[in-house]
Amino acid sequence: MADYDLQSEAGRRDALRRMVTIRAFDEEAGDRFADGEIPGFVHLYIGEEAVGVGTCAALEPDDYIASTHRGHGHCIAKGLDPKYMMAELYGKADGYCNGKGGSMHIADVDEGMLGANGIVGAGPPMATGAALSIDYQDRDQVAVGFLGDGAVAQGQVHEAVNIAATWDLPAIFVIENNHYGEGTPVEKQHNVDTLSDTAQAYDIPGVTVDGMDVTAVEEAVAKARERARAGDGPSIVEAETYRYRGHYEGDEEPYRDDAEIERWKARDPIETFKDRLIDRGELTEDEFDDLQAEVEAEIDAAVEFALEADDPTPEQAYEDMFAEMPPEIDRFATAARTDGGESGGDRR
Protein backbone atom coordinates (compact mmCIF):
# COMPACT_ATOMS: atom_id res chain seq x y z
CA MET A 1 0.00 0.00 0.00
CA ALA A 2 1.07 3.47 -0.74
CA ASP A 3 1.67 5.56 2.35
CA TYR A 4 3.46 8.77 1.54
CA ASP A 5 2.76 12.46 1.75
CA LEU A 6 4.55 15.62 0.77
CA GLN A 7 4.90 16.89 4.33
CA SER A 8 8.06 14.95 5.15
CA GLU A 9 11.40 14.74 3.41
CA ALA A 10 11.07 10.96 3.06
CA GLY A 11 7.57 11.37 1.65
CA ARG A 12 8.73 13.88 -0.95
CA ARG A 13 11.52 11.59 -2.02
CA ASP A 14 9.02 8.72 -2.25
CA ALA A 15 6.74 10.84 -4.42
CA LEU A 16 9.64 11.70 -6.73
CA ARG A 17 10.57 8.07 -6.97
CA ARG A 18 7.02 7.14 -7.90
CA MET A 19 6.93 9.71 -10.68
CA VAL A 20 10.22 8.38 -12.00
CA THR A 21 8.87 4.83 -11.76
CA ILE A 22 5.75 5.73 -13.72
CA ARG A 23 7.82 7.28 -16.47
CA ALA A 24 10.26 4.39 -16.64
CA PHE A 25 7.42 1.86 -16.62
CA ASP A 26 5.58 3.61 -19.42
CA GLU A 27 8.67 4.20 -21.52
CA GLU A 28 9.42 0.51 -21.25
CA ALA A 29 5.81 -0.42 -21.99
CA GLY A 30 5.92 1.79 -25.10
CA ASP A 31 9.11 0.12 -26.31
CA ARG A 32 7.79 -3.34 -25.63
CA PHE A 33 4.55 -2.55 -27.38
CA ALA A 34 6.52 -1.31 -30.40
CA ASP A 35 8.45 -4.58 -30.34
CA GLY A 36 5.17 -6.46 -30.57
CA GLU A 37 5.53 -8.09 -27.17
CA ILE A 38 2.52 -6.38 -25.62
CA PRO A 39 -0.82 -6.98 -27.33
CA GLY A 40 -3.84 -4.71 -27.54
CA PHE A 41 -3.74 -0.99 -26.81
CA VAL A 42 -1.52 0.93 -24.41
CA HIS A 43 -2.18 4.51 -23.36
CA LEU A 44 0.86 6.05 -21.70
CA TYR A 45 0.86 8.49 -18.78
CA ILE A 46 4.20 10.13 -19.54
CA GLY A 47 4.02 13.86 -18.74
CA GLU A 48 1.07 13.48 -16.38
CA GLU A 49 2.90 11.84 -13.47
CA ALA A 50 2.32 14.72 -11.04
CA VAL A 51 -1.45 14.29 -11.21
CA GLY A 52 -1.61 10.66 -10.13
CA VAL A 53 1.18 11.00 -7.58
CA GLY A 54 -0.06 14.33 -6.18
CA THR A 55 -3.53 12.87 -5.79
CA CYS A 56 -2.45 9.64 -4.12
CA ALA A 57 -0.02 11.51 -1.83
CA ALA A 58 -3.06 13.30 -0.42
CA LEU A 59 -4.88 10.01 0.19
CA GLU A 60 -4.67 7.51 2.99
CA PRO A 61 -3.57 3.98 2.06
CA ASP A 62 -7.04 2.47 2.23
CA ASP A 63 -8.77 5.16 0.16
CA TYR A 64 -10.13 4.12 -3.21
CA ILE A 65 -9.33 5.28 -6.69
CA ALA A 66 -11.23 4.53 -9.90
CA SER A 67 -9.00 4.94 -12.90
CA THR A 68 -9.20 5.43 -16.66
CA HIS A 69 -7.85 3.81 -19.81
CA ARG A 70 -4.64 5.76 -19.06
CA GLY A 71 -4.19 3.96 -15.76
CA HIS A 72 -0.58 2.79 -15.33
CA GLY A 73 0.37 5.97 -13.46
CA HIS A 74 -2.58 5.70 -11.11
CA CYS A 75 -1.62 2.11 -10.31
CA ILE A 76 1.96 2.97 -9.42
CA ALA A 77 0.91 6.08 -7.50
CA LYS A 78 -1.50 3.90 -5.52
CA GLY A 79 1.21 1.39 -4.72
CA LEU A 80 0.65 -1.46 -7.15
CA ASP A 81 3.73 -3.50 -7.99
CA PRO A 82 5.21 -2.84 -11.46
CA LYS A 83 6.11 -6.52 -11.68
CA TYR A 84 2.53 -7.76 -11.65
CA MET A 85 1.43 -4.78 -13.72
CA MET A 86 3.92 -5.64 -16.43
CA ALA A 87 2.86 -9.29 -16.29
CA GLU A 88 -0.72 -8.13 -16.87
CA LEU A 89 0.31 -6.03 -19.86
CA TYR A 90 1.95 -9.14 -21.26
CA GLY A 91 -1.24 -11.14 -20.66
CA LYS A 92 0.42 -13.52 -18.23
CA ALA A 93 -1.23 -15.67 -15.58
CA ASP A 94 0.74 -13.85 -12.86
CA GLY A 95 -0.64 -10.44 -13.81
CA TYR A 96 -3.04 -8.55 -11.57
CA CYS A 97 -6.02 -9.91 -13.53
CA ASN A 98 -4.45 -13.25 -14.48
CA GLY A 99 -4.08 -11.92 -18.00
CA LYS A 100 -7.77 -11.41 -18.56
CA GLY A 101 -7.70 -7.62 -18.37
CA GLY A 102 -4.51 -6.16 -19.84
CA SER A 103 -3.47 -2.51 -19.78
CA MET A 104 -6.99 -1.11 -19.95
CA HIS A 105 -8.40 -3.14 -17.08
CA ILE A 106 -5.66 -3.46 -14.46
CA ALA A 107 -7.22 -3.57 -11.01
CA ASP A 108 -6.42 -4.50 -7.45
CA VAL A 109 -9.50 -3.94 -5.36
CA ASP A 110 -7.70 -5.00 -2.17
CA GLU A 111 -5.28 -2.13 -2.71
CA GLY A 112 -8.15 0.27 -3.31
CA MET A 113 -7.56 0.39 -7.04
CA LEU A 114 -10.97 -0.15 -8.61
CA GLY A 115 -9.68 -0.65 -12.07
CA ALA A 116 -8.45 1.05 -15.18
CA ASN A 117 -11.41 1.33 -17.50
CA GLY A 118 -11.95 0.94 -21.20
CA ILE A 119 -15.11 3.00 -21.12
CA VAL A 120 -14.49 6.73 -21.05
CA GLY A 121 -16.36 8.28 -18.13
CA ALA A 122 -17.11 5.01 -16.35
CA GLY A 123 -14.75 5.73 -13.42
CA PRO A 124 -16.73 8.49 -11.69
CA PRO A 125 -19.88 6.37 -11.11
CA MET A 126 -17.59 3.71 -9.65
CA ALA A 127 -16.09 6.30 -7.28
CA THR A 128 -19.55 7.50 -6.31
CA GLY A 129 -20.44 3.89 -5.53
CA ALA A 130 -17.33 3.36 -3.39
CA ALA A 131 -18.11 6.63 -1.58
CA LEU A 132 -21.62 5.34 -1.00
CA SER A 133 -20.42 2.20 0.76
CA ILE A 134 -17.95 4.26 2.80
CA ASP A 135 -20.77 6.55 3.87
CA TYR A 136 -23.18 3.68 4.47
CA GLN A 137 -20.77 1.85 6.72
CA ASP A 138 -19.37 4.99 8.36
CA ARG A 139 -15.87 4.20 7.25
CA ASP A 140 -13.03 6.66 7.41
CA GLN A 141 -12.11 6.73 3.73
CA VAL A 142 -12.68 8.64 0.52
CA ALA A 143 -13.00 7.60 -3.12
CA VAL A 144 -11.35 9.37 -6.04
CA GLY A 145 -12.70 9.14 -9.55
CA PHE A 146 -10.15 10.08 -12.20
CA LEU A 147 -11.42 11.30 -15.54
CA GLY A 148 -9.97 12.95 -18.61
CA ASP A 149 -11.02 16.27 -20.08
CA GLY A 150 -12.84 14.35 -22.79
CA ALA A 151 -14.75 12.29 -20.25
CA VAL A 152 -16.34 15.44 -18.87
CA ALA A 153 -18.68 15.22 -21.89
CA GLN A 154 -20.07 11.84 -20.78
CA GLY A 155 -23.60 11.73 -19.43
CA GLN A 156 -22.73 9.24 -16.74
CA VAL A 157 -20.09 11.61 -15.34
CA HIS A 158 -22.74 14.25 -14.73
CA GLU A 159 -25.01 11.70 -13.08
CA ALA A 160 -22.22 10.42 -10.85
CA VAL A 161 -21.17 13.88 -9.66
CA ASN A 162 -24.76 14.94 -9.09
CA ILE A 163 -25.55 11.91 -6.93
CA ALA A 164 -22.37 12.32 -4.90
CA ALA A 165 -23.10 16.03 -4.42
CA THR A 166 -26.75 15.57 -3.54
CA TRP A 167 -25.93 12.89 -0.99
CA ASP A 168 -22.78 14.59 0.35
CA LEU A 169 -20.71 11.51 -0.41
CA PRO A 170 -16.97 11.40 0.33
CA ALA A 171 -15.86 11.47 -3.30
CA ILE A 172 -13.30 13.54 -5.19
CA PHE A 173 -13.41 13.90 -8.96
CA VAL A 174 -10.00 14.57 -10.43
CA ILE A 175 -10.14 15.82 -14.01
CA GLU A 176 -6.86 15.22 -15.79
CA ASN A 177 -7.04 17.91 -18.41
CA ASN A 178 -4.31 16.92 -20.84
CA HIS A 179 -5.98 19.11 -23.46
CA TYR A 180 -7.01 16.36 -25.86
CA GLY A 181 -9.49 13.53 -26.07
CA GLU A 182 -7.75 11.33 -28.62
CA GLY A 183 -7.16 13.86 -31.42
CA THR A 184 -9.82 16.39 -30.49
CA PRO A 185 -8.68 19.47 -28.55
CA VAL A 186 -10.52 20.31 -25.36
CA GLU A 187 -12.03 23.55 -26.73
CA LYS A 188 -13.79 21.58 -29.45
CA GLN A 189 -15.42 19.34 -26.85
CA HIS A 190 -16.70 21.82 -24.28
CA ASN A 191 -18.28 25.25 -24.23
CA VAL A 192 -16.74 26.23 -20.89
CA ASP A 193 -13.11 27.37 -20.82
CA THR A 194 -12.44 26.02 -17.37
CA LEU A 195 -13.69 22.50 -16.76
CA SER A 196 -13.81 22.89 -12.99
CA ASP A 197 -16.48 25.56 -13.52
CA THR A 198 -18.90 22.67 -14.03
CA ALA A 199 -18.77 22.29 -10.23
CA GLN A 200 -21.09 25.27 -9.96
CA ALA A 201 -23.90 23.21 -11.43
CA TYR A 202 -23.67 20.88 -8.42
CA ASP A 203 -22.94 23.57 -5.86
CA ILE A 204 -19.66 21.95 -4.86
CA PRO A 205 -16.11 23.37 -4.87
CA GLY A 206 -14.25 23.26 -8.14
CA VAL A 207 -10.61 24.29 -8.54
CA THR A 208 -8.12 24.23 -11.35
CA VAL A 209 -4.49 23.63 -10.47
CA ASP A 210 -1.17 23.24 -12.25
CA GLY A 211 -1.09 19.53 -13.00
CA MET A 212 2.63 19.67 -13.77
CA ASP A 213 3.24 20.52 -10.12
CA VAL A 214 2.86 17.59 -7.76
CA THR A 215 2.59 19.87 -4.71
CA ALA A 216 -0.25 21.93 -6.20
CA VAL A 217 -2.20 18.79 -6.97
CA GLU A 218 -1.55 17.34 -3.53
CA GLU A 219 -2.71 20.49 -1.78
CA ALA A 220 -5.97 20.69 -3.74
CA VAL A 221 -6.78 17.02 -3.24
CA ALA A 222 -5.87 17.18 0.46
CA LYS A 223 -8.36 20.02 0.87
CA ALA A 224 -11.00 18.08 -1.00
CA ARG A 225 -10.30 15.06 1.17
CA GLU A 226 -10.72 17.10 4.32
CA ARG A 227 -14.06 18.39 3.11
CA ALA A 228 -15.18 14.89 2.11
CA ARG A 229 -14.22 13.44 5.50
CA ALA A 230 -16.01 16.27 7.28
CA GLY A 231 -19.20 15.06 5.62
CA ASP A 232 -19.52 18.07 3.33
CA GLY A 233 -19.49 16.12 0.10
CA PRO A 234 -17.45 15.90 -3.09
CA SER A 235 -15.21 18.37 -4.91
CA ILE A 236 -13.91 18.69 -8.42
CA VAL A 237 -10.18 19.18 -8.90
CA GLU A 238 -9.03 19.93 -12.41
CA ALA A 239 -5.32 19.40 -13.05
CA GLU A 240 -3.92 21.01 -16.19
CA THR A 241 -1.40 18.66 -17.70
CA TYR A 242 -0.17 17.22 -20.96
CA ARG A 243 0.60 13.85 -22.44
CA TYR A 244 3.93 13.73 -24.22
CA ARG A 245 3.16 10.60 -26.22
CA GLY A 246 0.33 9.98 -28.65
CA HIS A 247 -3.14 9.11 -27.46
CA TYR A 248 -2.12 5.49 -27.72
CA GLU A 249 1.06 3.98 -29.01
CA GLY A 250 0.96 4.15 -32.78
CA ASP A 251 -0.94 7.45 -32.88
CA GLU A 252 0.48 9.56 -35.76
CA GLU A 253 -0.65 12.77 -34.03
CA PRO A 254 -1.86 14.82 -37.00
CA TYR A 255 -3.63 17.17 -34.57
CA ARG A 256 -0.66 18.87 -32.84
CA ASP A 257 2.85 20.08 -33.53
CA ASP A 258 6.22 19.54 -31.91
CA ALA A 259 6.49 23.14 -30.69
CA GLU A 260 3.45 22.63 -28.47
CA ILE A 261 4.91 19.44 -27.03
CA GLU A 262 8.21 21.16 -26.35
CA ARG A 263 6.48 24.04 -24.54
CA TRP A 264 4.96 21.58 -22.09
CA LYS A 265 8.12 19.54 -21.73
CA ALA A 266 9.85 22.70 -20.52
CA ARG A 267 7.64 22.41 -17.43
CA ASP A 268 8.31 18.72 -16.91
CA PRO A 269 6.81 17.55 -13.60
CA ILE A 270 9.74 15.32 -12.68
CA GLU A 271 12.45 17.83 -13.55
CA THR A 272 10.66 20.62 -11.71
CA PHE A 273 10.11 18.63 -8.56
CA LYS A 274 13.62 17.22 -8.61
CA ASP A 275 15.07 20.74 -8.94
CA ARG A 276 12.92 21.91 -6.08
CA LEU A 277 14.20 19.13 -3.81
CA ILE A 278 17.77 19.92 -4.81
CA ASP A 279 17.20 23.62 -4.06
CA ARG A 280 15.88 22.68 -0.66
CA GLY A 281 18.99 20.65 -0.02
CA GLU A 282 17.01 17.41 0.24
CA LEU A 283 18.54 15.78 -2.80
CA THR A 284 21.70 15.87 -4.88
CA GLU A 285 22.09 15.17 -8.58
CA ASP A 286 24.05 12.06 -7.67
CA GLU A 287 21.32 10.81 -5.43
CA PHE A 288 18.83 11.42 -8.20
CA ASP A 289 20.99 9.44 -10.62
CA ASP A 290 21.10 6.59 -8.12
CA LEU A 291 17.37 6.72 -7.70
CA GLN A 292 16.88 6.61 -11.44
CA ALA A 293 19.25 3.66 -11.78
CA GLU A 294 17.38 1.78 -9.07
CA VAL A 295 14.07 2.40 -10.75
CA GLU A 296 15.39 1.30 -14.10
CA ALA A 297 16.65 -1.92 -12.53
CA GLU A 298 13.24 -2.45 -10.97
CA ILE A 299 11.50 -1.99 -14.32
CA ASP A 300 13.97 -4.28 -16.06
CA ALA A 301 13.22 -6.88 -13.40
CA ALA A 302 9.51 -6.38 -13.99
CA VAL A 303 9.94 -7.06 -17.69
CA GLU A 304 12.08 -10.06 -16.90
CA PHE A 305 9.38 -11.33 -14.57
CA ALA A 306 6.67 -10.76 -17.16
CA LEU A 307 8.63 -12.50 -19.89
CA GLU A 308 9.29 -15.53 -17.73
CA ALA A 309 5.81 -15.77 -16.25
CA ASP A 310 3.50 -18.46 -17.57
CA ASP A 311 0.75 -17.83 -20.05
CA PRO A 312 -2.68 -18.58 -18.67
CA THR A 313 -3.85 -22.06 -19.58
CA PRO A 314 -6.56 -22.09 -22.26
CA GLU A 315 -8.99 -23.59 -19.73
CA GLN A 316 -8.74 -20.39 -17.68
CA ALA A 317 -10.73 -18.67 -20.41
CA TYR A 318 -13.83 -20.30 -18.96
CA GLU A 319 -13.16 -19.31 -15.36
CA ASP A 320 -14.44 -16.24 -13.53
CA MET A 321 -17.61 -15.61 -15.53
CA PHE A 322 -19.76 -16.22 -12.44
CA ALA A 323 -19.33 -17.07 -8.76
CA GLU A 324 -21.29 -20.20 -9.46
CA MET A 325 -20.79 -21.48 -12.95
CA PRO A 326 -23.86 -22.25 -15.02
CA PRO A 327 -23.68 -25.51 -17.00
CA GLU A 328 -23.84 -23.75 -20.39
CA ILE A 329 -20.24 -22.60 -20.41
CA ASP A 330 -18.91 -26.02 -19.60
CA ARG A 331 -21.14 -27.53 -22.24
CA PHE A 332 -20.05 -25.08 -24.94
CA ALA A 333 -16.43 -25.27 -23.85
CA THR A 334 -16.46 -29.03 -24.08
CA ALA A 335 -18.08 -28.91 -27.48
CA ALA A 336 -15.59 -26.31 -28.68
CA ARG A 337 -12.69 -28.40 -27.42
CA THR A 338 -13.76 -31.66 -29.07
CA ASP A 339 -12.45 -32.21 -32.53
CA GLY A 340 -14.95 -34.20 -34.51
CA GLY A 341 -16.56 -37.00 -32.54
CA GLU A 342 -20.21 -37.18 -31.64
CA SER A 343 -22.70 -34.72 -32.98
CA GLY A 344 -24.93 -34.87 -29.91
CA GLY A 345 -28.71 -34.90 -29.98
CA ASP A 346 -31.15 -37.68 -30.75
CA ARG A 347 -30.80 -40.00 -33.68
CA ARG A 348 -33.68 -40.53 -35.99
Binding site: C97, G99, G102, D311, P314, E315, A317, Y318, F332
Partner: peptide, 16 residues
Protein backbone atom coordinates in the same frame (compact mmCIF):
# COMPACT_ATOMS: atom_id res chain seq x y z
CA UNK B 1 -18.15 -17.78 -28.48
CA UNK B 2 -18.81 -20.12 -25.54
CA UNK B 3 -20.68 -17.57 -23.40
CA UNK B 4 -17.56 -15.82 -22.11
CA UNK B 5 -16.38 -12.28 -22.63
CA UNK B 6 -13.35 -11.72 -24.82
CA UNK B 7 -10.30 -12.10 -22.55
CA UNK B 8 -7.16 -10.01 -23.09
CA UNK B 9 -4.34 -12.55 -23.02
CA UNK B 10 -3.74 -14.02 -26.48
CA UNK B 11 -3.85 -17.70 -25.40
CA UNK B 12 -7.18 -17.08 -23.73
CA UNK B 13 -8.56 -15.06 -26.62
CA UNK B 14 -7.51 -17.73 -29.10
CA UNK B 15 -9.22 -20.30 -26.91
CA UNK B 16 -12.67 -18.74 -27.01
Amino acid sequence: TPDTHMPFSPPLEQEV
